[in-house]
Write a protein that binds this DNA or RNA. Structure first.
Lengths: 198, 198
DNA sequence: CGTTAGTTAGTGAGTAGTCACAAACATATT
DNA sequence: AATATGTTTGTGACTACTCACTAACTAACG
């Protein structure tokens, strides 16, 4: 079946993410992608010059999703703590929607083959940390969060929390609700971080 | 150069870990290992029947190192908090000594090809979490740690801390001292977890 | 001399990427 | 409306290469 290049490209990107989740990012071969879509392997190279370019398109798709999710989270919250929670929640939602993401971070494709890919994702992680640190600082300024910890350190604890829960979810049997469990732990950590006379 | 099978096996395992760190676990081919050692590729199969068996030996080597490091940490500390800190410190030391470890957890070899390998590492992670939870519970019992958080949740926050810092170290340029930075954050988290009237 | 670590030379199963060609589609001209 | 012309999307056969693994043979060591 013949499709427009735009549609086909999107279909290929979606299929790569699907396969990356099901068989692992480094097992995603051009042949596997093609046969899942129902075209020949050679057809992929009509749309992407190399496999690396294909992965780059996937990375940009994912990065875009993260960016808009964070934007929404920040826009909808009215206090630092609410915005913090919304950011964490959005992050978990994105990971659950793109379950290949944690593994992608450690894939051969990202860490060895494709330096540009690596830069893309590393930049996103830094951005997320920065957003968290900013909200933590704001929370400390209005007296809602303890001041005896650097905002950057608190943000590091929170990003670690996200990564830790995501790892447990990804490496395990995925037998719990990622976002619910993550937010439960976030709330626990938040109680530890809350200013005492509250 | 001819070596005894025992020595050669150890050399192969060490080389796999070295290469896994430098070029990524999934790029470790039998050919690459052999040429780094200075033997032919076929020689490896004199010592290990399959590549999966080779990885299994690597996993057992690493798991053994972790187990003894934890044992030492528990033996040398005399209070729960000191033991907690020693456990965390030992974990960071092991990761720094085996820098391929974080990536190994997400490698294709471990997650797709080799189910036994996966079970080995997953069991170790669970054990570590259990040890942390036990010490946290002990710390709460003697009143050194806040009681308003479940010991299991506190342990989850601490394992996440380890994983988060290790990820930042592994994916980044490794431009900081893993153990020092990890312990700094542990101390910060410990202050949050400490009982207030202390 | 017998055992064992090692070599040389190969196999079969993948892998990304190429190439000549065909069918579907779009558009301009008659 | 009908046709001619060029473009886009896809095919099937192929190349060059890498991988784990094997079989037959060789040389070192006790």
């Amino acid at each position: 079946m013949r499709k427009s290049a735009e549609l086909r490209k999107a279909e290929i990107v979606a299929t790569v993410l699907d396969l990356a989740d099901r068989i692992g990012p480094d097992r995603v071969t051009t042949g596997a992608v093609a046969s899942q879509i129902g075209v020949t392997q050679a057809a992929l190279f009509r749309h992407f010059p190399t496999k690396a370019a294909l992965w780059q398109a996937v990375a940009e798709h994912v990065a875009e999703g993260l960016a808009t999710a964070w934007e929404d989270a920040l826009r909808l919250g009215d206090t630092p703590i609410v915005r913090l929670r919304a950011l964490i929640s959005a992050q978990f939602a994105q990971i659950a929607a793109t379950p290949a993401l944690p593994m992608l971070l450690f894939s051969r494709e990202l860490n060895v083959t494709n330096a540009k890919l690596r830069a893309t994702f590393h930049g996103r992680l830094t951005t997320f940390h920065g957003l968290l640190a900013m909200e933590v600082g704001a929370g400390q300024n209005i007296g809602a969060l303890r001041g005896d910890i650097a905002a950057n350190d608190a943000a590091a604890l929170l990003t670690s929390l996200v990564q830790g829960v995501a790892i447990r979810w990804a490496l395990g049997a995925r037998d719990f609700d990622l976002r619910a469990e993550g937010l439960r732990l976030f709330d626990a950590q938040c109680r530890l971080l809350a200013a005492e006379g509250e």
